[in-house]
């Protein structure tokens, strides 16, 4: 299982999907020119590597901010994970800065829309 690692840029997030280490994370900020194109490799990786989640896994979202087209892709990501979780074990850890009320409520929003263990944490 090859890891998917994308370095963060000023407008797009860092991505870590590493089954061997059991690390799953999206960080930095997400406002790419084409969010659909940016997130597509993440979805195809998940499609191919569902088995990775047979052991208990935590998917971390540590975003400073994201645009509304990325919001839609994040929802899609959670739907993928929700489907994977039917036969596996996935939890979401949503990180937010203690002063960032918006990021906190965004996490709350997703936690209500998605049937997955969803924890909000400070960073």
């Amino acid at each position: 299982m090859e890891a998917l690692l994308i370095n963060a840029k000023e407008d797009s997030p860092g991505v870590i999907l590493d089954a061997q280490k059991g690390e799953y994370e999206i960080n930095h900020r997400s406002l790419p020119e084409d969010a659909v194109a940016f997130y597509a490799p993440i979805f195809s990786w998940l499609e191919k590597n569902k088995d990775a989640f047979s052991k208990r896994s935590i998917f971390k979202i540590k975003l400073e901010y994201y645009n509304t087209t990325s919001a839609k892709q994040l929802y899609k990501l959670f739907c993928y994970l929700q489907e994977i979780a039917v036969n596996n074990s996935v939890e979401i850890h949503w990180y937010y800065h203690p002063d960032d009320k918006d990021m906190h409520s965004a996490g709350e929003r997703y936690s209500k829309l998605i049937q997955l263990p969803f924890t909000l944490l400070n960073y």
């Binding site: 406002l31 400073e64 645009n67 800065h97 002063d99 960032d100 918006d102």
Partner: peptide
Amino acid sequence: NQLLFRKRIVNIIVELIQ
């Protein structure tokens, strides 16, 4: 300025220019 204010400005600029 507060962090939240600064972030919201960035958000709005991104949405308007995109």
